[in-house]
Amino acid sequence: MKLSGVEIRTVELPLVSPFRTSFGTETVREALLVRVVTDEAEGWGECGAGTAPLYSSEYTHAAADVLTRFLVPALAGVPGLDAHRVAPALAPFKGHRMAKAALETAVLDADLRVRGVSFGHALGAVRETVPCGVSVGITESIPALLDAVAGYLDAGYLRIKLKIEPGWDVEPVRAVRERFGDILLQADANTAYRRADARHLAHLDPFDLLLLEQPLAEDDLIGHAELAARLTTPICLDESIVSARAAADAIALGACRVVNIKPGRVGGYLEARRIHDVCAAHGVPVWCGGMLETGVGRAANLALAALPGCLLPGDTSASDRYYRTDITAPFRLVDGHLAVPTGPGIGVTPIPDVLEAVTTATKWVPVPAGCHPS
Score class of each variant (00 low, 15 high):
T233A: 07
G309R: 05
D182I: 07
P234S: 09
R274H: 14
A106E: 02
V11Q: 13
T294D: 03
W44Q: 06
L81M: 13
A189Y: 00
N190C: 03
D205W: 05
V11I: 15
R97A: 11
F70I: 08
A299V: 10
E271A: 10
A318Q: 12
A63F: 00
D315M: 07
S22L: 00
D208Q: 13
A305R: 05
G156C: 06
T342K: 15
V117F: 01
E271C: 14
H337C: 11
S22T: 00
L67S: 01
A305E: 03
L185P: 13
P215T: 00
V130E: 02
V28T: 14
V6E: 03
T294F: 05
P330A: 08
A272F: 14
W364A: 05
K100Q: 10
L209C: 06
G116Y: 05
A175W: 06
A148R: 15
E42K: 02
Y59F: 15
V284G: 03
D154Q: 10
S118W: 03
H121E: 15
T328S: 10
L162D: 09
G167M: 01
V348N: 10
P206I: 09
L145W: 08
R115F: 04
L209K: 04
A64L: 14
E226C: 01
H84Y: 12
G295W: 01
Y269T: 13
C288R: 09
F207H: 03
G297K: 04
V130A: 02
G137D: 04
R85S: 14
V266Q: 12
V367S: 13
A89Q: 07
I183H: 04
F19V: 13
A246N: 13
P263C: 14
D205T: 07
V6G: 03
L15P: 15
A49K: 08
E213D: 08
I241K: 12
V334M: 11
P166I: 00
V259C: 11
L145H: 06
S56F: 05
C132D: 03
L162N: 09
A318W: 10
A272C: 12
H203P: 03
G297Y: 01
L75R: 05
A272I: 14
D320G: 07
P53Q: 10
L355D: 05
L71E: 03
T21G: 06
A369K: 06
V259H: 01
P172Y: 01
T139W: 01
